[in-house]
Amino acid sequence: MLTLNDAGCRPTIGRVVFGLTPDPAASAQLAQIVQADQAARTGNPAQMDWKAVAAQDEARRVQTLALLRSGRLSSARDAFSAALVFQHGDCPAHYQLAHWLAAQALAQGGIREAGWLYGATFDRWQISLGRPQRYGTQFVEVAPCDIQLAPVAAGTTDRDRERLGIPALGLARAPADILSDRCRRGLP
């Protein structure tokens, strides 16, 4: 159980419960929510209607939050999926919840990408608080089609990153160059 309150969040989280009552129907509903979440992010980011995506993201967070409040989600896949939805939140408490859920998925095991999501949710949470990221998973657009790795705090080693399935910091900068190039060329 976790309680988070942040009046600036849409929706406000309040109390969530994870792992009380396994419910295959709730897991299936969450799988559909995540599928829509990921589908909304296909295509060229420079050509996407991000206001529409944000509104859709909020609706998906409301649906996911209802499932979390009911205690009907319990598997590592449920935790991972709910973390993905809240990774696309709009406030620090959303990212904190995403990180907590990713930690649940990582602890339960069986999902290869759970380590990466654990690091990515932590990084996004820290950036939302005005702090540097720890693992080097988050990028910022400093100008149109100029994407760079967000500042990274010292102290996390490439070995720490490797344990979570996150690329070494030297390799983390390459996707920013690729994303910038694709954006300039109008590619998805």
Rank of each mutant, 00 (worst) to 15 (best):
S180Y: 11
W50K: 14
I178L: 12
A150W: 05
G130E: 11
A143C: 07
H88F: 08
R15T: 15
G89D: 04
A153R: 13
A168V: 11
Y135A: 07
P22G: 13
F139V: 00
M1Y: 14
Q126A: 10
W100K: 00
A76L: 03
Q104N: 07
M1H: 15
A103V: 02
N5A: 14
A36F: 04
E162Q: 15
S81C: 05
V140K: 06
I13Q: 11
L30H: 09
E113S: 12
P92F: 04
H99K: 00
D158A: 07
L129V: 10
Q104D: 02
Y95P: 02
Y95F: 15
D23P: 09
G14I: 13
R173F: 07
F18R: 14
R163E: 13
A168H: 12
G71V: 12
Q96M: 04
S128L: 01
A120H: 00
D123V: 10
R72W: 03
A174N: 03
G43S: 14
E58P: 01
I13V: 15
A120G: 02
V16P: 03
L164P: 13
A102V: 02
P188Q: 13
A172V: 07
R61P: 06
F80P: 01
P22L: 08
G110R: 09
D57Y: 01
L129W: 10
V53T: 08
G89N: 03
D181G: 13
I147D: 00
A36G: 09
I127H: 07
G136D: 07
I178G: 03
A52T: 12
M1T: 15
P188H: 10
A103K: 06
L164G: 13
C145T: 11
D37T: 02
I127L: 15
A98T: 02
Q133N: 08
H94Q: 10
K51H: 10
T12R: 15
T157D: 09
A103P: 00
Q126S: 05
P11L: 07
F122S: 08
C9L: 09
A26N: 12
A105D: 02
I147V: 15
R124L: 02
V17G: 08
A176M: 13
A46N: 06
F18W: 15
L129R: 15
Y135E: 10
A154Q: 14
Q32I: 01
Q29P: 04
E162P: 01
I127P: 08
A107I: 07
A76R: 05
I127S: 03
G43Y: 11
Q108C: 06
Y118I: 01
A40T: 06
D177K: 14
A59Y: 01
W50M: 12
S128Y: 03
L2W: 15
S70I: 10
T137R: 08
L129N: 13
G165F: 08
D123M: 06
A107D: 12
L106R: 13
I166F: 05
P11W: 04
L149P: 00
S70W: 10
G14F: 08
G115W: 00
D23E: 11
D146Y: 05
P24L: 10
D177R: 14
G43V: 12
G19A: 14
S75N: 07
A76M: 03
L106V: 01
G8M: 10
Y118T: 13
A54R: 09
D78Q: 04
C91K: 08
L187F: 13
W116H: 07
T3G: 10
G165Q: 08
P11K: 04
I178E: 11
R161T: 02
V53M: 01
D57L: 04
